[in-house]
Design a protein around this nucleic acid. Structure first.
Length: 353
DNA sequence: GTCCAGGAAA
DNA sequence: TTTCCTGGAC
C-alpha cells in the first residue's frame, strides 16, 4: 500500500528531501521564530528577507523583547522591507501575547497581521497541525499540475484551491509537505521559465500537456495606479534639520520623512516656491536660501507612481521657521526609519556631518 | 524604461 | 475591491 495519499503528495515530499533550501528558520519549532520569518516573507522574497530576519531576531529574540521595544525601533529594523503595516502589526501582536505565543489555530489566526496563510504556516511548522498553506507558490503549482483556470484572486478560486491544498496535504507530516510544495514552487515550478524538462511531476502535469504553463495561474485583476507629486524640503539650520512622522492612514505610515508638501501636479521651481504652503513654513522676515537638488525622481509602488522633487533650504541655526516639525541634529537623521525614496536621497545627496 | 511577484486588512 | 512597498527580471 502506498505510504502517501497520492502520487502528487509523495512526489512533492521526495523532491523536498533532495532539494530543500537550508534556511535559518527551517528545522526550528519555535513558533516565535517561525512567525517572524513568515511575516517577513509575506510579499517578500527569501533573498531580500534573509538578512532582515537575522538582524531582527538578533535584536528581538523572543516575544517579550519585542513587546517591550519601542515601535520606532521596530520600524527602524524594518526600514527598506516595505509594507510597513507588517512591522506595526508584529509589534502590536507581540504586546497582546503576555509573553506566551498562542498554541491553537484560532488564536494564531486572531493575531494582528496573521491571515490564513501565515496561521497555517505557523501551526503546521511549529505544532505539526494539519493545515495546508496556500500562498502564491501553492496557487501556481496546483493550478498548473491540475490545469485549473479559475482565477486565483476570485472568491471561487480561493475556496477551490484551499480545498484542493487540504486534500493534497499529508496529514501525518504537514510541515514537510507544506514546506515542500512552497520550495517546489520557488525553485522548480517558477513563475517564469519553470524547469519542466527536469520536473518530477511533468508526467501528470495538465498545464504541460495542454501548453498552458505560461498561462497559469490565471489572475483577473490588473491594478491601476495613480500619480502623486511630493516636494521634499531638506532644511539645514546650522547642525540641525527637521523631520516629520507620517501618522495618517496613508503610505509609509509611522515612518519619518523630510518636511513634505504634496501637490496635485508637478510644479516648476518658481511656482512651488510661491505656494502659500511653502511660504508659511518660514518665520516672518526670514530670507532662506533655496536650492533645487533633484527633480522628478520617479518612485514606483504597486498602485502609485510618486514624482518627487527635493529642495535644500539653508536657514540660520536657531531659526523659528519649520516650527511644526521635529527638530533633530542632522547627523542623527540615520537613526530614524524612512522610506526607500527618502533614504536614497539622504544617501546620495546629503553630507550628514 | 516596463512587468511582475508576493498576503493581510478594511 | 482597494490599499498597502520593494527589488529583480527583462
Amino acid at each position: 500500500m502506498c505510504q502517501y495519499a497520492n502520487m502528487f503528495t509523495e512526489t512533492i515530499i521526495e523532491w523536498y528531501k533532495e532539494n530543500k533550501r537550508d534556511l535559518p528558520w527551517r528545522d526550528s519549532s519555535d513558533p516565535y521564530l517561525i512567525w517572524i520569518s513568515e511575516v517577513i516573507l509575506q510579499q517578500t522574497r527569501v533573498v531580500q528577507g534573509y538578512d532582515y530576519f537575522l538582524r531582527f531576531i538578533g535584536r528581538f529574540p523572543d516575544v517579550s523583547t519585542l513587546a517591550d521595544a519601542e515601535e520606532d525601533e521596530v520600524m527602524k529594523y524594518w526600514q527598506g522591507l516595505g509594507y510597513y503595516s507588517r512591522a506595526r502589526n508584529l509589534h502590536a501582536a507581540a504586546k497582546s501575547m503576555n509573553g506566551v505565543f498562542p498554541k491553537t489555530y484560532p488564536e494564531v489566526l486572531a493575531l494582528k497581521g496573521v491571515g490564513e496563510y501565515t496561521a497555517a504556516a505557523i501551526c503546521s511548522f511549529a505544532y505539526n497541525m494539519p493545515y495546508a498553506v496556500v500562498d502564491g507558490n501553492v496557487y501556481r503549482v496546483l493550478s498548473r499540475y491540475f490545469g485549473i483556470e479559475t482565477p486565483i484572486d476570485s472568491t471561487a478560486g480561493k475556496k477551490l484551491f484551499t480545498e484542493l491544498a487540504n486534500e493534497m496535504l499529508d496529514k501525518k507530516q504537514p510541515a514537510l509537505y507544506n514546506q515542500g510544495i512552497m520550495d517546489f514552487g520557488a525553485i522548480q515550478c517558477t513563475p517564469q521559465s519553470p524547469d519542466c524538462l527536469f520536473c518530477p511531476l511533468s508526467v501528470g502535469c495538465s498545464a504541460l500537456s495542454k501548453g498552458l504553463v505560461t498561462v497559469l495561474p490565471v489572475k483577473q485583476h490588473k491594478t491601476k495606479s495613480t500619480n502623486r507629486y511630493f516636494n521634499y524640503i531638506y532644511v539645514r539650520a546650522g547642525a540641525h534639520t527637521f523631520i516629520n512622522k507620517r501618522t495618517d492612514n496613508d503610505i509609509w505610515k509611522n515612518l519619518f520623512e523630510l518636511p513634505l508638501i504634496e501637490t496635485s501636479s508637478s510644479l516648476p521651481e518658481e511656482e512651488f516656491l510661491a505656494l502659500p504652503e511653502f511660504q508659511t513654513l518660514f518665520a516672518p522676515g526670514e530670507q532662506p536660501v533655496v536650492r533645487p537638488v533633484c527633480r522628478e525622481v520617479k518612485h514606483i509602488l504597486s498602485h502609485r507612481v510618486i514624482y518627487a522633487n527635493f529642495y535644500e533650504v539653508i536657514l540660520p541655526e536657531g531659526t523659528a521657521s519649520f516650527g511644526k516639525f521635529q527638530k533633530i541634529k542632522a547627523e542623527e537623521l540615520e537613526r530614524y526609519a524612512v522610506s526607500r525614496l527618502v533614504h536614497a536621497f539622504i544617501e546620495k545627496y546629503i553630507d550628514l556631518k
